[in-house]
């Protein structure tokens, strides 16, 4: 453990922590745009600079580790002026179209601009202008809103292991792109979308579905596979308008393409919501679960009597949990009386 003072408050933290982490553990907020607690430090936005006694210049708290006896001040008039300058510079190259931006309300840049009262008018100049084009069905990439914080590049590399994105070009023209500036062609897990602090990366199917007015958050479990990630569905009226996940869930907030974008079946007219039995006429007839299970059990019994239990086989699903799969094989062996049991993952 290391003892240091942050804003004259004595704190004791593990020695490998950064100043930013130490501050945040002790309830002291330091502004940042590029830092993400689940990704390695980047040090690009420079908003988290703090003053450390004995250092000639402000230091980036996200990349500087604590040391014994350090005296940190997270806010001085000089530091706040420098932060304002950085925000001015970022906003001077930003569309500032919050009115129509999908990220409004959940945009870190917007929040900081609001907190600092910065409008991006102090250093007017050229803005990057990019034609919109991205042929994929999931992820909208509006690079004019990109502040090059690098979070998407890091999450794609460090969490997903895909490395679909990286920095390209230099200077003011620096840009984050897939290789050769092609359209995005990846797993479309959308982790990049989930960590983007601005409206540069958003879900295509979320567009114009509702931002925060009248949108409820409902936590649920993803039905797609046995992992059982915790999802947060954002529901407006009775419609899911987008899906996210929270960092303190068992899946640490990360999702795959199905969990994040594959929710439209919920309101699909083709979705089966009640058991159906096909009658002799060939027509499906709605029935109750009890009736449907009794009907199926009766047929199993008939087959077993006529052809023996081994005439029946059971195929289980990867969407079931371990426990469900256990029960299923138990049912097949002990209930039906056959060892003909397998799992779709073996197919």
């Amino acid at each position: 453990m290391v003892s240091l003072t942050i804003n004259n408050k004595k704190v004791s933290v593990p020695e490998d922590l950064t100043i930013l982490e130490a501050a945040s553990r002790n309830g002291i907020k330091v502004p940042t745009l590029c830092h993400h607690p689940q990704l390695t430090p980047f040090g690009g936005c420079r908003l988290c600079v703090v003053s450390v006694k004995g250092m000639p210049k402000p230091v980036a708290s996200c990349t500087t580790t604590v040391s014994e006896g350090m005296e940190v001040t997270t806010s001085t008039p000089e530091i706040e002026d420098l932060r304002k300058l950085v925000l001015e510079l970022i906003l001077s190259d930003h569309p500032n179209d919050c009115m129509t931006c999908e990220a409004t309300g959940s945009c870190a840049l917007q929040e900081l601009a609001y907190a600092y009262g910065v409008r991006g008018e102090a250093y007017p100049g050229e803005r990057r202008v990019y034609a919109k084009r991205d042929g994929n069905p999931f992820i909208e990439r509006d690079m004019e809103k990109c502040i090059l914080c690098g979070r998407c590049v890091k999450v794609c590399d460090e969490v997903q292991g895909v490395e679909a994105l990286d920095f390209t070009y230099r200077g003011f023209r620096s840009k984050i792109c897939p290789s050769y500036e092609d359209d995005l062609d990846c797993e479309f897990c959308g982790q990049c979308v989930s960590v983007c602090p601005t409206g540069a990366l958003t879900g295509k199917q979320w567009a114009r579905r509702g931002r925060y007015e009248g949108v409820r958050e409902v936590d649920t479990t993803c039905p797609y596979c046995g992992t059982g990630c915790t999802l947060t569905t954002h529901v407006k009226g009775n419609e899911i308008v987008r899906v996210s996940s929270k960092p303190w869930t068992p899946n640490e907030g990360w999702l795959c393409v199905k969990g994040r974008f594959g929710y439209k079946y919920v309101s699909s007219p083709d979705r089966l919501t009640k058991p159906l039995i096909r009658r002799a006429s060939g027509e499906f007839e709605e029935t109750s679960w009890t009736a449907a299970l009794e009907y199926t059990a009766a047929w199993f019994k008939k087959i077993r009597e006529k052809h023996s239990a081994d005439a029946i086989g059971g195929l289980s699903s990867a969407r079931c949990t371990n426990e469900e799969n256990y029960l299923f094989q138990k049912f097949m062996r002990a209930g039906v009386g056959t060892n003909n049991v397998d799992h779709c993952a073996r197919l």
Binding site: F42, G43, S92, F172, S174
Partner: peptide, 21 residues
């Protein structure tokens, strides 16, 4: 320097551009 900035940090990437302008 503006053309050779790596683009990582804001003061260098955008700041030198504004300086140049």
């Amino acid at each position: 320097t503006q053309e050779e900035s790596c683009g990582k940090c804001v003061p260098c990437r955008v700041g030198t551009k504004r300086l140049l302008e």
